[in-house]
Amino acid sequence: MSPADAISWALLAAGGVSCVLGAVGLLRMPDFFTRMHAASVVDTVGAGLILLGLMVQAGLTLVTVKLVVIGLLIFFTSPTASHALARAALARGLEPKLADGGAPSKP
């Protein structure tokens, strides 16, 4: 168990756990907009840690370059998709569930 393996094992375990946590949050959150929070946990922390763990495992090769490209891809496209999703939901009149029954939030 060389140090590189230990580091990548820890990163992969943390990434896997955060992916599962995000998915559990996706199920348990009461409202659509809160579920987007949970889903973005999977996109950012889960993907980031797993890709980092794989990069440590792969060392400085072409595989690591491709993993960096995948990381950048997820880094740029996931917020865009979430933004489009939220706007589409709001445009369709999907109101977020507010705490005190829809009263406007005090400053």
């Binding site: 659509f32 889903a39 999977v42 797993i50 890709l51 995948i70």
Partner: peptide, 24 residues
């Protein structure tokens, strides 16, 4: 709502990308 399903589809896509990377 239909947007939950779109959100789930987006998450499935991202997890599929990660699964492919790990399977590699």
């Amino acid at each position: 709502t239909v947007f939950d399903r779109a959100l789930a589809a987006n998450t499935v896509g991202t997890v599929a990308v990660l699964l492919l990377a790990v399977m590699e």
